[in-house]
Design a protein around this nucleic acid. Structure first.
Lengths: 225, 225
DNA sequence: TAATGTGAACATTTTCACAGCA
DNA sequence: TGCTGTGAAAATGTTCACATTA
């Protein structure tokens, strides 16, 4: 019932839905596999991968099995093959241009962040509405006025944006991004964006994460009751 | 006690475990409720809250019910009361000191981030191992050498840290933090930290989030099918 | 023996349906 | 009627047990 073993059914371009939690873990796998590849390791078992990332071996196999048969029983997974396949899934065999909107401290940090390129992303344009910033270069990227957003995004074919403006300006800027044809927004502003469904938004709320961390730590060790 | 109306079971200090996904949403509720309070709104329904945050009304009620009975049937929830209760849950009726380790671009962004104070966090100390940074002030905070970490953390009673050092230095710095008695780490380094269980770690991997966003957007819209 | 892949059991989370209060 | 609170159903996610392949 299954195909020959050599011709492996990798359901390559079939976009059957991978669960979001699995997708989140796939980027962990990719990160670690890239490290292993850099160290010259050519095979890896689900156990090794899981141990390195704090997951069970079964979880790793289930996740990897969600997009095709890759492993060789008794042997493990081929590192380079998996890296290729995961990049294909994330669409990062190529490099994607990203726009940064808001060149405050967070925007600046992203412009300076070298790690992005290795992962397949390149900050290709930056926007701000502060006239004092416009025309300057930050980490080598020219800061443009918001009025040039649509034109620049279209000309460069940018589909991803990072939104790092103050809360009060976020919704409006997000709508500008939509108008410009952006497909996905990584949102650092502590605001829920109200946008059409065809635009994907991933929120990143640092203060909220600290609150949650504080909850899980619990009350101060009641030293005296 | 405060049972004024019908004895309402608010299980105030009972720390029965709230599920992690609920906790994540509780910070969303708190954020929005604080806004409503600032606007002078005194009551809110689960429906209104849900609409504002992209959740169903049932989800909101289930979440709020997970730590006591708060709503008044036919009326809704009292905004200020909920704000107080949520702050109590997150432990943020008081302000907590936070240490930032690594004063690169991300560390700097956090030092400059005003939003933290409003949420109950104050960056009280910064550390780096680069001698050129040590002794300088960044956003008003003195940068100290890593060798002073333990002493400073203990003296100031700091229990939360943000780790923003390069991947290669992350594990070692994290161990230093543990030694110093830190209880929770917000980890910006793209590395899984291997630490004792009693230290809580919340990872924040920006490149990974972009990858996931790219996955959900899917392949470039093949314009002619 | 050392691995993968997977159905079935289990656990968690979300949604539904509705009882009951104001 | 408008709203909360909640048991039960449905959906989603994780772990277990084991067949299978190298």
């Amino acid at each position: 019932m299954r195909q020959k073993r050599k011709g492996r059914p990798t359901n390559t371009s079939r976009r059957e839905r991978i669960s979001p939690l699995t997708v989140a873990r796939l980027s962990l796998y990719l990160r670690h596999l890239e490290e292993l590849a850099a160290q010259g390791q050519s095979m890896v078992s689900s156990r090794q991968l899981g141990d390195a990332l704090g997951l069970t071996d079964v979880q790793v196999r289930k996740d990897l099995a969600s997009f095709g048969q890759f492993g060789r029983p008794g042997v493990g997974y081929e590192v380079n093959g998996l890296v290729r396949r995961l990049r294909e899934i994330f669409g990062t065999e190529r490099v994607w241009d990203v726009a940064v909107v808001g060149v405050g401290s967070i925007g600046r940090a992203l412009l300076a962040f070298k790690g992005l390129v290795k992962k397949g992303f390149h900050v290709a344009a930056a926007f701000d509405k502060d006239p004092r910033k416009i025309g300057k270069r930050v980490s080598g990227v020219l800061v443009r006025p918001m009025t040039e957003l649509a034109v620049t995004v279209r000309r460069k074919g940018i589909r991803l944006a990072v939104l790092a403006v103050p809360a009060s300006a976020a919704q409006e800027a997000a709508e500008d991004l939509c108008q410009a044809g952006i497909k996905g927004i990584l949102n650092f502003s502590p605001v829920r964006l109200n946008l059409p469904d065809h635009v994907a938004v991933v929120p990143v709320d640092l203060a909220a994460k600290l609150q949650q961390l504080n909850y899980f730590i619990g009350p101060p060790k009641s030293r005296q009751g």
